[in-house]
């Protein structure tokens, strides 16, 4: 058959596509369970990381079941929803819905009698999505710990938000100001506050201003949805704003 004829070209393309497509589909399907397992374990590992329990990804299940005593899905009014499992809520899809229809997952951890509320976060960095988890102590004001991750931030700059030294800056920061207004935590460029834990701000990463702003926004935009629940279900006075 003439290699330059149209018929040969079409035949070649059809065969090539069939082979490539089936090979890829086969691999994707075969590897899907392992991949899903990795993602699930990483989620549990991250959630535990916010409350100071560092575990290997593969062995996250047991401590997760032990310490995370409640997982609740809330609606925008702070009422519990029974129709969804908090752990399976995909924030990427959830954020595209109207606020009234969204489910807000909340994890409650109990570590040797101390109670922590863990809130999943998701927002925008410089290049793509950033996400994370933030744990609040039972005063619903002081941060116990935070974990961040990203899809495509610049290595050495924005990608540093995943590093422990950056995460540690959030420890013991407050999300309310002295008057009880909700502020969140701002990742501040040119921060001069040193170790001040009451100014609702931490030092940013130089060269990663937009990623840092993304972290600031993600914390305040997500946490504000949980205020109604905290107001009704904890004995802490939460000013509404």
């Amino acid at each position: 058959m003439d290699r330059n004829s149209n018929a040969y070209t079409f035949l070649f393309v059809v065969l090539l596509i069939a082979v490539v497509a089936s090979a890829l589909a086969l691999t994707a399907t075969a590897l899907q369970p392992e991949q899903a397992e990795n993602v699930k374990n990483e989620k549990m590992q991250n959630i535990l990381g916010t409350v100071g329990i560092e575990v290997a990804r593969d062995s996250a299940q047991i401590p997760f079941d032990k310490y995370i005593v409640e997982r609740i899905a809330l609606d925008s009014k702070g009422q519990e929803r029974n129709d969804v499992d908090a752990f399976t809520v995909d924030l990427k899809k959830e954020l595209k819905k109207d606020v009234e229809e969204q489910a807000f997952p909340l994890y409650v951890a109990d570590i040797e009698g101390a109670k922590y509320y863990i809130v999943p976060l998701r927002g925008k960095g410089l290049w793509d999505a950033i996400w994370g988890y933030i744990a609040l102590k039972d005063d619903v004001n002081t941060i116990k710990g935070a974990v961040f991750d990203h899809k495509a931030e610049t290595p050495g700059l924005g990608a540093e938000i995943t590093q422990t030294w950056f995460r540690k800056r959030f420890d013991d920061e407050k999300i309310f100001d002295d008057a009880g207004n909700f502020i969140g935590v701002s990742v501040a460029k040119g921060y001069q506050g040193g170790d001040n834990k009451d100014d609702n701000a931490i030092d940013a990463i130089s060269g990663a201003t937009i990623t840092g702003d993304g972290v600031t926004d993600m914390i305040s935009e997500r946490l504000i949805n949980y205020l109604p629940y905290f107001k009704n279900n904890t004995n802490v006075k939460v000013a509404s704003n």
């Binding site: 330059n4 040969y8 070649f12 490539v20 691999t27 590897l31 991949q35």
Partner: peptide
């Protein structure tokens, strides 16, 4: 076997398929 008129496309398909394979295997 590759028809010379579409050789660049064929090359792209082969490279893209290999890259996706590498990516999927790394992820698992």
């Amino acid at each position: 076997l590759i028809p010379s008129r579409i050789r660049i496309i064929v090359q792209l398909v082969v490279v893209a398929a290999l890259v996706i394979l590498v990516d999927q295997i790394l992820r698992a």
